[in-house]
Write a protein that binds this DNA or RNA. Structure first.
Lengths: 174, 174
DNA sequence: ATAAACATGTAACATGTTACATGATTAT
DNA sequence: ATAATCATGTAACATGTTACATGTTTAT
């Protein structure tokens, strides 16, 4: 059973508790989005495919929610999720436009510091969100480990951007 | 003139010297691939589009290479490249499957250390390549700055993977 | 001769984003 | 009533990967 990574985001969350596509998106936006983003355009079709494959099952909707469809993980789904977890992870993909700009800054050297500062600003914004999340106390266990990674890595990157921007400003073109 | 990032990889390299799609790929595989990968399937069609838009121009092929088509940057291409460099960079996209596995490791806690070790091994391999590149002495100026980023960031990540794997092994489930 | 490296290109597929359309429920 | 939020879904588009097809040049 070969699934795309987004499918595993869904399976992973359903392993916590039954939920709807809307819930998956809301939780992803507060957590996995920092290292694996998703959108409704992926989640809803994927939930259908997973249901067709028998890895998730629509929960009988109890009174109230009309349009709402909650799904739960099936035994097969849980097995597929565990198999994926045991597999060596695929190589990290990075798409860092700021780095690309610094790399090619030879064509306009005065722009390099701006690219570094843009990256730093973006990281500070991300850091603020991650710290809010951390002080909420909600992430525990493995999710908290990943949150700490996000915070510490971002801090390292911010420091690097500051250091290199300073160096470039002082030394001029490297 | 809105172009995709891959187009700027091409323009950036042509700003160094005229070259073919094959050259762009070979150089990207030794440099930008660590923060922006490309493939022939993108490069050749993109070169055509850039030529159609007048941002690059096929060089008159001198004796020898038959099929070989070298392109050079036009004045318009150079202007578009500089405009892009001056623009604030788009947010960083990360797709880190190893982190996803740690995040969802609650469903199979014994797999978390394996995901961390997989990530560490991949990083060590990347580090070896980056260090070889560094000791070649070829990257200078802004490209060397980005290379140092790759090396130092990877070292930080390796240390983090080791530290957390150790913690998980000692403390058991977090 | 033949293998390796050089070189270009396309088609099928996978993945992901954005914008739009639609309607129900809940709080003010 | 009405605005906000909850909720589902699709279509068009953008981007990117992989596998394949094809031929040339250079070194052994």
């Amino acid at each position: 059973m070969e699934l795309n990574p987004t499918a595993y985001v869904i399976l992973g969350m359903l392993a916590w508790r039954p939920m709807s596509g809307y819930d998956v998106k809301a939780i992803a936006d507060q957590s996995t989005r920092f290292f694996w983003a998703t959108s409704y355009g992926q989640i809803y079709p994927e939930l259908r495919r997973l249901a067709a494959a028998g890895l998730v099952a629509a929960e009988p909707q109890e009174g109230g929610g009309r349009g709402r469809k909650a799904y739960k993980l099936t035994d097969d789904g849980a097995r597929v999720l565990r198999e994926w977890l045991a597999q060596p992870p695929r190589p990290l993909e990075m798409r860092d436009e700021a780095l690309l700009k610094v790399f090619f800054a030879g064509s306009a050297p005065e722009t390099a510091v701006g690219a570094l500062e843009g990256k730093r600003r973006e990281l500070e914004a991300k850091l603020a969100q991650l710290r809010t999340l951390e002080s909420s106390g909600k992430p525990t266990g493995h999710t908290a480990v990943v949150l700490r990674y996000g915070i510490e890595l971002s801090e390292w990157m911010v420091a690097w951007c500051e250091r290199e921007a300073k160096r470039l400003r002082e030394e001029g073109a490297p």
